[in-house]
Design a protein around this nucleic acid. Structure first.
Lengths: 210, 210
DNA sequence: GTCTATACTCTGATAGAC
DNA sequence: GTCTATCAGAGTATAGAC
C-alpha cells in the first residue's frame, strides 16, 4: 500500500472500531438500560474482554458520553442533509421529521440511548450532552422560523412550544414503534406533519391564536 | 377514640405509610433513576432503615412495581374525574389533557417513574405493568372515539395514531417542563388541544385525508 | 414493625504480562 | 492493543434481637 494512503486507512479502521463498540453498546443500553448493562457484557458483544475496553475508555460513563456525542452528530448530519434536499419550507419540515424518525428507530440505537439515559450521567458530563442537545434543537428552531418567514406558518404561532411538543411526539415514537407493526415511519411522520400544517398554516380559516 | 372508627383509621395510616414510601421513592427514582438509587437512600428518605423497608417489600423491584401500580391508579382516577366534569366531547378532551399533564409533573413523581423506568422491571413484572398501561391508553381511545361519534373529529382520522402521537407529546413534557419556566400546564395543554381540534375538526376546510 | 449486624454477590476498574 | 488475574467497594437482601 502506498504510504500516502496509510494514514486515512488507519483512521478509518479506528473509526470503524469505535462505531462498532458504540453501536453494540447502544443496543445493550437500549434493551437493559445503562446501569444494568455490565462492562463484561459490552466487551462480550464486541468480542473482546473487559480489560480491552478500558484501553479505549477510562470509565463506563466515558463510553456513554462518547456514544451520545456520536449519536447526536449522526442525527444532526441526517437532518441537515434532509433539510438541504429541497427549498420548499413545508417539504423541508416533512423531510426533517422523517430523518429524525429514521435516526430514532434505525438499527443504531444511539439516539434512543441519548434520549433516555441522560440521567445516568453525572453533573458535568450531563451539562455537556445537554448543550449538544440544545444545538440540535436550535436546528429545529431555525427550520420552523424559516417556515414562518416564508409564510407557511402563521406568524403568531408559539414556535418554542411547537418545537417542544413536536419533538416530544417524535421522540416518544421510539417507545412504541414496531417495525413489524401497522405503521411505517413515513406514515407516522406524515401524520404529524399534516396536523401541524393543517392547524398552523398561514391564512387558516380557523384557529384564532387567542 | 371510639372503637368503630379504629379499623378505618388503621387502614388510613397504613395507606398513608405506603403513599409516603412510594412518593419518596418516586422522587429519588425520578432524579437518579431506579438502579442508581440505593435501598439505603430510600429508607433514609422515609426516615427508617433498610431492614424496615424489607418488611414491606420483599425486593427493591417489588417496591417499584407497587409504585407504578399506585401511580397508574392515580392518573386513571384523575383523568376519569376530569372526563366526567362535562358532557361536551371537545371540552372533555381538553380536561383530560390537563389532568394527564398535572399527574405528570405534580409533586408526586409516580407517573414519571412509570413512564421512564419500566425497563428496570424483569419479564413478568414488565408485562403486568404494560397491561395496566394498556388499560389507561384504552381510556384515551374511548375519549377520542366519542369525539368522532359526536361529530367533533373527522370520521376518517386514524385514532390510534392520534392517540399515540398525542400521548407521546404529553409524556415528553415531563422531560422539559419547568414550574419556574415560561409555560404553565394550561398553556401547554391548550396548545396541543387547539392543534388537534384545528387540524382534525369535522368539516374542516383543509386536510383531505390523503 | 423497626433496628442491628452481616453475608454474599457482582461490578467497575487496575496492574502488568504478552 | 488485547488478555489475565484480581481487588476494593458497593449494594441487595437476610437473620434475629428488641
Amino acid at each position: 500500500m502506498p504510504t500516502s494512503k496509510t494514514q486515512p486507512v488507519i483512521a478509518a479502521t479506528e473509526g470503524a472500531q469505535r462505531a462498532l463498540i458504540l453501536t453494540r453498546a447502544a443496543r445493550l443500553f437500549r434493551k437493559k438500560g445503562f446501569e444494568r448493562t455490565t462492562v463484561k457484557e459490552i466487551a462480550q458483544a464486541c468480542e473482546m474482554l473487559p480489560g480491552s475496553l478500558y484501553y479505549r475508555y477510562k470509565t463506563k460513563e466515558e463510553l456513554l458520553v462518547d456514544l451520545m456525542r456520536y449519536g447526536i452528530e449522526d442525527v444532526m448530519q441526517d437532518v441537515l442533509a434532509s433539510f438541504e434536499q429541497t427549498e420548499d419550507p413545508s417539504e423541508q419540515l416533512r423531510y426533517c421529521i422523517n430523518a429524525h424518525l429514521r435516526a430514532l428507530v434505525s438499527d443504531s440505537d444511539l439516539i434512543f440511548v441519548l434520549l433516555f439515559e441522560w440521567r445516568a450521567l453525572g453533573g458535568e458530563a450531563q451539562s455537556d450532552i445537554i448543550a449538544l442537545r440544545d444545538d440540535y434543537e436550535r436546528l429545529w428552531s431555525d427550520i420552523l422560523e424559516a417556515m414562518v418567514q416564508e409564510g407557511v406558518l402563521k406568524p403568531d404561532v408559539d414556535l418554542k412550544l411547537l418545537r417542544l411538543v413536536g419533538i416530544g411526539s417524535l421522540n416518544w415514537v421510539a417507545t412504541w414503534y414496531d417495525p413489524e407493526g401497522p405503521y411505517d415511519l413515513d406514515q407516522i411522520g406524515g401524520f404529524l406533519w399534516r396536523i401541524i400544517v393543517d392547524a398552523l398554516l398561514a391564512g387558516g380559516a380557523r384557529g384564532a391564536p387567542s
